[in-house]
């Protein structure tokens, strides 16, 4: 049985992901191909939205992952602040740019759906505005990591911002229930089951699983690069301190 300490070890993480990542890539590529086929050739045009319903097959997974990624950062930040877990800090830092990209795509694809359906690319309704705030939170996290030179100070500052910002996640989720928004209420994850016809629901679910596995792959790859970057930085510091010690001895 693997202990928590073994799993938390960066070297073990590198060995494990080395084996897992190629399989994970194979699965998400196959699922994405199947999802795209279903989105364009199996799903019918919606009786109200027409062909623009096809934008939903990418917009909805991006929006779900934008929130899911932020939750990963928040949980990792707790792990980093409380247990000083080295992989937790790496996980939070590696996830932020991916989350920012998915949030941007959720906003842009939603906007491209909104113009033909609502007659406007953007409206300041609660759902859209709270997702825009999420995008700015991601940018804030990236800025903190990039602007503070000491990685441990940067990690702590970013972790605090991430934990404070998590209040925005329930606001995004329930904005369509709490306020009178132009954005439609939940139609998949709701009490009483989905309200979408199976011919449209299935392609959406396949795309959601494909993008979720792609996100996991991207996150693990980014974590590996971050671990290697930290090793490089440590070795550079060792080189500098050895050079200083050598000079002092002369």
């Amino acid at each position: 049985m693997l202990s928590f300490a073994t799993l938390a070890n960066p070297s073990f993480f590198m060995r494990l992901t080395d084996r897992v990542l190629p399989w994970l890539a194979g699965v998400w590529i196959l699922l994405l191909a199947a999802g795209l086929y279903m989105s364009f050739f199996v799903a019918p045009a919606d009786y109200q939205q027409g062909e623009t319903v096809r934008i939903m097959f990418i917009h909805v997974p991006f929006a779900w992952l934008a929130m899911f990624c932020y939750m990963i950062i928040a949980v990792s930040s707790i792990g980093s602040l409380i247990w000083r877990h080295p992989l937790a800090d790496v996980s939070a830092k590696a996830a932020a740019p991916i989350g920012a990209a998915f949030t941007l795509l959720a906003l842009v694809t939603g906007s491209l759906w909104g113009k033909p359906m609502w007659g406007a690319y953007w409206v300041w309704d609660a759902r859209l505005t709270s997702v825009l705030v999420l995008f700015f939170l991601y940018l804030g996290l990236i800025a903190l990591w990039e602007s503070i030179e000491d990685p441990s100070r940067a990690g702590r500052a970013a972790a605090i911002l991430a934990i404070v910002g998590v209040v925005n996640i329930p606001i995004i989720k329930f904005s369509v229930d709490w306020w009178n928004t132009l954005h439609q209420p939940a139609s998949v994850m709701r009490a009483g089951g989905p309200t979408i016809h199976p011919t449209i629901l299935w392609p959406l679910l396949v795309m959601a699983v494909a993008f979720s596995l792609m996100f996991l792959w991207l996150h693990l790859k980014a974590m590996r690069a971050e671990i290697l970057r930290r090793r490089v930085e440590t070795m550079m510091m060792t080189r500098v301190s050895s050079a200083v010690a050598l000079k002092a001895a002369e």
Binding site: E51, I55, L112, W113
Partner: peptide, 8 residues
């Protein structure tokens, strides 16, 4: 709109 969303 559809192709722009997928392209981006």
């Amino acid at each position: 709109f559809i192709w722009t969303a997928y392209g981006l």
